[in-house]
């Protein structure tokens, strides 16, 4: 539990991440993701509760924890005046890798993150995506067994985001234990084994992406037809490929069909609607977003929450006593305590 004055930033976060797996902390702005990451990376002391990372107690042996982790914070912590190489070399020296190894490692990482060419330019000449990659490289310098990435793709353009996802999935295959925070369900789904949905400082749901989506209702096709007369025909056409009941909103001539199978379903649906002679105004495949997850979990949209949400349904005051534990463990034999 962590309070800032009257604001309770964290109220109940109880997590165990087995070695070599990826947990994604999914939540809107102000949910408490960064606070959680800061506590686990020894930057912040919780007011109550405990946490272990790689078997080491965060409060009792912070320095031992720091040896075992890599952190890439929410805002790229890159020194703009140093070159990419100098940034990584400095981090290596501060991890005590030694002069030679630090240099070697810096070059390796620049290569891995496709920054070799820019490596000897000051980082202030880098694009947002390049800075992010450099920051991430900084987290990997000491090849730490446990890695924390706080919103690694927020603020990136779609192309850089895809790039980053590719890089991250490569890394994850290497067997690193990773805690990743994000505001995007899609990102959590792509990268994580497990997702914890966090809201108002509390974990409100936990499961795989599929489990969460099932809870929300999975993906669906939405169609708006041009004439009232087409609605019935469209309903029949969609029902044939839907995995559940097709919902019809008559006044707006809108139909929503739950499906599973992605874009192929949409193609099939359009083909069927076309051969049924239904005029279509709009059609699309809708995947559940974090908004949908929130709507279904909390009954309200995931709004940005500056004041810590006094008064809203998920607000904290009067919540259960928070004696919470977080275990982030790379060593499964000592780590899995439940």
């Amino acid at each position: 539990m962590k309070r800032y004055g009257k604001v309770t930033a964290l109220a109940g976060v109880d997590l165990v991440v087995p070695q070599g797996t990826v947990l994604s902390l999914l939540g809107p702005n102000g949910a408490g993701k960064t606070t959680t990451v800061r506590i686990l990376t020894t930057l912040l002391e919780p007011d109550e509760g405990s946490a272990t990372v790689a078997g080491v107690d965060v409060l009792r042996e912070p320095r031992q924890v720091r040896r075992r982790i890599g952190l890439s914070g929410q805002y790229a912590a890159v020194d703009e005046h140093l070159t990419g190489f100098e940034n990584l070399d400095m981090v290596g020296r501060l991890y005590h890798l030694g002069r030679r190894r630090s240099r070697e490692r810096a070059r390796e990482l620049l290569e891995l993150f496709r920054l070799t060419e820019a490596g000897d330019r000051p980082a202030k000449t880098y694009s947002g995506g390049m800075r992010r990659r450099l920051d991430l490289a900084g987290a990997l310098v000491a090849e730490p067994p446990v890695l924390f990435l706080d919103e690694p793709t927020t603020g990136l353009d779609p192309r850089s985001r895809m790039d980053m996802w590719d890089l991250l999935s490569q890394m994850v295959r290497g067997g690193t234990t990773l805690l990743l925070t994000t505001q995007y369900l899609e990102e959590a789904e792509r990268l994580a084994d497990d997702i914890a949905v966090i809201d108002h400082g509390r974990v409100i749901a936990r499961g795989t992406a599929d489990q969460l989506k099932d809870q929300v209702g999975g993906e669906r096709i939405e169609v708006v037809v041009t004439e009232d007369a087409g609605v019935e025909a469209a309903r029949a056409a969609l029902q044939a490929i839907a995995v559940g009941e097709v919902v019809v909103e008559r006044h707006s001539r809108r139909l929503v069909a739950p499906v599973s199978g992605g874009a192929a379903c949409l193609v099939e649906a359009l083909r069927r609607l076309d051969s049924a002679g239904v005029g279509i105004l709009d059609a699309g495949l809708r995947r559940p977003t974090m908004d949908d997850v929130f709507l279904s979990l909390t009954g309200r949209p995931a709004e940005e929450d500056v004041e810590g949400g006094q008064g809203s349904p998920g607000a904290v005051p009067g919540g259960p006593p928070a004696q919470r534990r977080i275990d982030l463990d790379q060593d499964a034999s000592t780590g899995m305590r439940r």
Partner: peptide, 17 residues
């Protein structure tokens, strides 16, 4: 302001360094 202190503080370096 730039968050660089956070990076330093997450490293196993001597605190007052």
């Amino acid at each position: 302001q730039k968050g660089i202190i956070d990076r330093f503080r997450s490293l196993p370096m001597a605190q007052p360094a």
